[in-house]
Design a protein around this nucleic acid. Structure first.
Length: 221
DNA sequence: TCCGAGATTGGCT
DNA sequence: GCCAATCTCGGAT
């Protein structure tokens, strides 16, 4: 296994978001080892991107964005969920990549228990298909949290890192607008969501969300 | 099976 | 008051 280096994360945020596709997020949680292939990401880029939390400068909550690429930015949303981001760019340059979906590779039994609070049965295909196909779902499945992982460094931390994975052919890398940021007038049409074509673990979008992706110009489909 | 509406929930965009 | 989300349930297909 090859852990991704500082140099990987310290690049342009959009390139990091694209290149994270196919890489493996690993969380060693005591005896439990979780592994998931990254299949969907979104880039959040700079002061002109109103979709980015840090577009008006940093707060106590977002201060880790100032750190060198490779640190973990994880935050609350809707009161009840947490979303996992990786800081990008060199120290002092603000950028982050949101992980939106994973393909479960290891520790699947534990992922199931974390998601559904019961022992895994292999008979419920719907539950198995929904383990990590959403940004808050993957945080729950891999037992990640603000409390334990905010500010951790994927380059040096003994519990969590990202490994080299499969190379995704260029023609299988899809690009679209980001999801659910209609409020961001300046930024909502940026094509900063990346995902692996035909991967079953990519987020299920509602028809209204799909419609939104098709508004105001091309969308990568 | 699929789709849409409604409820959920609390920190700080 | 708003939100980078999810689950459930009822009605349509």
């Amino acid at each position: 296994m090859i852990r991704l280096s500082r140099e990987f994360y310290e690049r342009n945020t959009i390139l990091v978001a694209r290149d994270l596709l196919g890489k493996i997020l690993v969380h060693r949680d005591g005896e439990k080892l979780y592994r998931g292939k990254i299949v969907e990401t979104e880039a959040y880029i700079n002061t002109k991107d109103e979709g980015a939390h840090f577009n008006k400068g940093l707060t106590n909550r977002t201060k880790v964005i100032n750190e060198p690429g490779g640190h973990i930015y994880i935050y609350n949303i809707y009161g009840m969920y947490q979303l996992f981001n990786i800081v990008t760019e060199k120290e002092g340059v603000h950028g982050a990549v949101l992980l939106r979906a994973l393909e479960p590779l290891g520790g699947i039994q534990y992922m199931y228990e974390n998601r559904y609070k019961k022992l895994m049965t292999t008979t419920n295909s719907k539950e198995l298909a929904n383990l990590t196909n959403g940004p808050a779902k993957l945080v729950r499945a891999m037992n990640l949290s603000i409390e334990n992982h905010y500010g951790a460094d994927l380059v040096t931390d003994s519990r969590i890192w990202v490994e080299e994975g499969s190379i995704i052919p260029k023609e299988d890398i899809m690009r679209s607008k980001r999801i659910n940021i209609e409020y961001a007038v300046n930024g909502r049409d940026y094509l900063l969501r990346f995902f692996i074509k035909d991967n079953r673990n990519v987020t299920n979008l509602s028809s209204s969300q799909r419609l939104r992706l098709n508004e105001r110009g091309r969308n990568g489909f």
